[in-house]
Design a protein around this nucleic acid. Structure first.
Lengths: 332, 332
DNA sequence: TTGTAGGCGTTATCAT
DNA sequence: ATGATAACGCCTACAA
């Protein structure tokens, strides 16, 4: 591979000059510029980004931290970030954080080691304080789906509790009282919020939440099926279900199909959803939409603005949105 | 950030020694090793991978080239590769090639510029010859879902034509004769193969393929819906559909639902599938499974073997597999 | 076992 | 407008 030195020699100039035409910096005579360009073509020269990074300690690279690679949620999230980063002419580095503070820290470090220009963090376990400390040093970052005091302008968030409340409200307004909840892992903050929304909606209508109507799963399909089975074993007379993820909703439908339970005939359903899986089900399921794609795009844009020293767009809290479909029956 | 130099000074040794303990190379007295380690801890030293790459021209990085980031197929493909690369302790760089030879070449170059140790290519447009030429130079690569003469041991492939034949055969064996085809983009080789499988199955049973039973789409949901509508406009009496992608199948179901067409009552369906979307539909759709996930894992493993100079596992042609579900009715 | 010194390919600061 | 030259942080002969 030809290096800048080869180009310099062939063009009979110094490496500095080649560097200048390369970066269009400084003043260069048109003739020498042409000469250099010719030499570059002739040698099929490609600048070495690693060397450049070493010299500038920046890398034209964006880092993304996620807790998992699996499942359509993360897949689409990564794809979306990939897309926008790509459009900014940068490369994306993704690093997985698994499920602890420690591994999240490591994931971030790997990315900083690579001198990423900026980071997008979908970090679930770090303490707010750690994040604030992190914000002190060089590498700028955006927090995806997380609210941290003092870092509001770096947060792209969603109101999970309100979303949950809306979903369950919808059910109650249609006459449902005995509403089951397929909940996410309790130790995840957003799962808690979604659950709180459920409780809040019930209480607002004078219904006391009943723990035995709730079952927990890891947001996944088979977990959802199992959780649904658990609840039905305890209460065969529920009239509605509030699912905290689309995959759990699919799992519940698996069970319904097996047992010839019809939706919304026997049971009404409202689910969280972020990649429109619920529209594939029959009937299409009414959802509260968690716009992870839009949020991902927003995060990339915000980071880009940060990197270019532009004024940050106002921090945005994405609003939940009810998407009415055909899975809710009006009870009389 | 502390550099190797700082560590050396603090430990009162040379940078070479630090480098040695870092890479566990050469012989070092236990006491100095300890000393160096201590210095590293004290300074919270982290080696700079960029500098290392520059020096060794290798980067502990794997590159992946895809034609698109969108859609569950690519999402899951990337996630899967991400997972295995991650487990090898490496970082993944993904680059998009869009839809032409030229852009594919560029995508590959970007990755080579970054000195990726190896590449996984899902390259659709490069000529076989170009790939062979590419194989000459340093960076090793694996071809995903593509067969190239002379590079057989670097190919992880799937028999699309046979898969298509199996699918349509299944339909014919259940008494169907007038079988529509939701085809992928003709200019893509694998789409052609899937289509050829359709033709072959028909001919083997003495049915002459009828172009008006075929409609093309870009493997996507709305395209599938439109294509299905086109065919139905021409032939309202088809009894079965062969869909070349799961998303098109979902699109067709969208139409069916609108028009109260039942599956398999009115129309039977067999579809290609790679991420099990078809099991979400009602009824669950019988599919030929295109095991992209397994293939992605295989590709990563093969690349890893290549990188470690291990003997390559025998090249594998993944076999199509019919997954019987409930979307095919037996015609009498 | 350890140190010296040159190189990896750029950028950037001075001069000229 | 251009050229030396010293970083950037690490690796690796070659010496000692």
């Amino acid at each position: 591979m030809a290096s800048i030195k080869d180009v310099a020699e062939l063009a009979k100039v110094s490496r500095a000059t080649v560097s200048r035409v390369l970066n269009e910096t400084g003043q260069i005579r048109e003739s020498t510029r042409a000469c250099v360009h010719e030499a570059m073509k002739k040698l099929n020269y490609r600048p070495n980004p690693l060397a450049r990074s070493l010299a500038t300690s920046s890398s034209n690279t964006v880092g993304l931290v996620v807790t998992s690679y699996r499942g359509s949620f993360f897949s689409e999230l990564m794809a979306e970030v990939q897309e926008s980063v790509d459009q900014q002419g940068k490369l994306l580095l993704v690093s997985r954080a698994h499920r602890s503070r420690d591994t999240e820290l490591r994931a971030i470090e790997r990315l900083k080691d690579m001198r990423c220009d900026g980071l997008i963090l979908h970090a679930r376990n770090l303490y707010d304080e750690e994040l604030r400390v992190l914000a002190e040093d060089k590498t700028p970052f955006i927090l995806l789906d997380r609210q941290v005091e003092g870092l509001e302008d770096r947060c792209v968030t969603f109101d999970h509790a309100e979303a949950g409340r809306m979903a369950v409200n919808h059910l109650i307004e249609h006459g449902h009282q005995k509403i089951a909840c397929l909940a996410g892992p309790r130790k995840r903050l957003t799962a808690q919020l979604r659950f709180q929304g459920y409780q809040r909606a019930l209480r607002e209508h004078g219904i006391e939440p009943d723990e035995s109507l709730v079952a927990e799963a890891d947001y996944d399909r088979i977990g959802g099926r199992r959780a649904m089975a658990e609840i039905l074993a305890r209460h065969s007379d529920i009239t509605a279900v509030y699912s905290c993820s689309e995959e759990m909703c699919v799992g519940a439908f698996d069970l319904f199909r097996e047992r010839n339970i019809t939706v919304p005939g026997d049971i009404s359903m409202v689910s969280f959803d972020s990649v429109d899986v619920c529209t594939i089900l029959t009937p299409a399921v009414t959802t509260v939409h968690f716009p992870i794609k839009e949020m991902a795009v927003r995060a990339s844009a915000a980071l880009s603005a940060l990197l270019n020293q532009q004024t940050l767009p106002a921090p945005e809290i994405f609003a939940p949105q009810l998407r009415l479909r055909h899975s809710v029956r009006t009870l009389d």
